[in-house]
Computed example of a mutant assay.
Amino acid sequence: MSRWEPNARGRLADAALELYRERGYEQTTVAEIAKRAGLTERTFFRHYADKREVLFSGAGELQELFVRAVADAPESAAPIDALARGLDAVSETFAGRRAYARARHAVITANAELRERELIKLASLSAALADTLRRRGVTEPAAGLAAEAGVAVFRIGFERWLADDGERDMTESVREALSAFRAVAAGE
């Protein structure tokens, strides 16, 4: 096995996603993922705690980016405007990644355990955003409501972007979802 080839982490992620799509998440083993990537199981476990984490390894970085963008918004920004900055920052990271995002999403939606993990990730993101808004001086329940709304806008914009024919980028889909939320909140 060619353990010393570059980008072992990326090769493992690609191999896992291919196998999950071909055989299903439950039927795929770590040994098969490692073999497909031309690596050992030991190398797999150096990069990922388990086969589920291959699909969620970027969640921490995504959350950090979102939180940092909200925290860095001008002090005068309304909570929803601070969240809009975070939504833009996160959306930009998906540029050129629609095919991967679609494949990942299909694997997750086909498995209850993975759907649950996705919901936990979104709840963690909401809690981190609410904490950030509170540090910006937003009181409750506004901080919690705004954070939950931000996550909902992200999720809906993401799903619309996945369903799109490829013409619009994710930033456009998320901004459209945010505009729709603003209209609903304004009673329009």
Results as ranks from 00 to 15, higher is better:
Arg3Asp: 14
Arg3Gln: 12
Trp4Met: 07
Glu5Ile: 09
Glu5Trp: 07
Asn7Lys: 10
Ala8Tyr: 06
Arg9Ile: 07
Arg9Leu: 12
Gly10Val: 08
Gly10Asp: 13
Arg11Leu: 12
Leu12Tyr: 05
Leu12Gly: 04
Ala13Met: 13
Asp14Ile: 06
Asp14Cys: 05
Ala15Tyr: 11
Ala16Met: 03
Leu17His: 06
Leu17Arg: 13
Leu17Cys: 07
Glu18Leu: 13
Glu18His: 11
Glu18Val: 14
Glu18Lys: 11
Leu19Gly: 11
Tyr20Lys: 11
Tyr20Thr: 07
Tyr20Ser: 08
Glu22Val: 11
Glu22Cys: 08
Glu22Gln: 13
Arg23Val: 08
Arg23Asn: 13
Arg23Asp: 11
Arg23Pro: 04
Gly24Arg: 08
Tyr25Cys: 03
Glu26Thr: 02
Glu26Asp: 10
Glu26Ser: 05
Glu26Lys: 04
Glu26Tyr: 00
Gln27Ala: 12
Gln27Phe: 04
Gln27Asp: 08
Thr28Glu: 09
Thr28Val: 13
Thr28Asp: 11
Thr29Gly: 15
Thr29Ser: 15
Val30Gly: 01
Ala34Arg: 00
Ala34Gly: 01
Ala34Glu: 00
Lys35Gly: 09
Lys35Phe: 07
Arg36Val: 02
Ala37Val: 04
Ala37Phe: 03
Gly38Gln: 02
Leu39Glu: 00
Leu39Lys: 02
Leu39Trp: 00
Leu39Ala: 01
Leu39Gly: 00
Glu41Asp: 05
Glu41Pro: 11
Arg42Gly: 15
Arg42Gln: 12
Arg42Trp: 09
Thr43Asn: 02
Thr43His: 02
Thr43Glu: 10
Thr43Val: 14
Phe44Tyr: 10
Phe44Gly: 05
Phe45Glu: 05
Phe45Ile: 12
Phe45Pro: 06
His47Val: 04
His47Leu: 03
Tyr48Gln: 05
Tyr48Lys: 04
Tyr48Ser: 04
Ala49Tyr: 05
Asp50Ile: 03
Asp50Leu: 02
Asp50Met: 02
Lys51Ser: 02
Arg52Gln: 15
Arg52Lys: 15
Glu53Met: 14
Glu53Gly: 06
Glu53Val: 06
Val54Asp: 08
